[in-house]
Amino acid sequence: MNWKMSRIVRTVTDFLVVPIVIFGIYLILHGHLTPGGGFQGGAVVASATALLIIAYGTLGRHKKDLSTIEAIGLILFISIALLGIGSTMFYNFLAGTGGMFGGTVEGINSGYINTGGTVTLMNLAVGIEVSAALSLILWMMSKETGIMKPEKKTSKTESKEVEN
């Protein structure tokens, strides 16, 4: 069976995947300045994964990596939320303290990326979690329904069974 699509589709995919992923990362990292945020950026990155799956028919074997990345994102989110439990959960303890994420904004400004405190970090964590989760759902669905090429570790007996 022919798993790849035609050369035209693959070339256009090669040109389109990089801007889509960059736009998703932009949405995640600028979530505290512009419309967008972790969920939206993660969904955009996962749509790039869908494009790759449909065009090439394979993503390699990265299921465990995706599961691990998703769990890491969720744990990061919960632990950032719990770090501020001195006052309340989800307390923004980094805002205005200076340093990498603690810049201050006031009034009408053009937006600085080093502001936001824990909001920026939580955007990053949710973006990692959502992109890995939606990519994993797409990966599993496409592999089970025959869109994606099965892995090579199937032995000869299994392939004979499939042919029968």
């Binding site: 967008g36 749509s47 025959g146």
Partner: peptide, 26 residues
Amino acid sequence: APDVAIAEAAVGAALTTAIFIFAIKA
């Protein structure tokens, strides 16, 4: 509501269509 618009365009137009087509293929 640009936040909701981005989420709807990414999830509704791209991902659910892809998942539906995968399921219909099976």
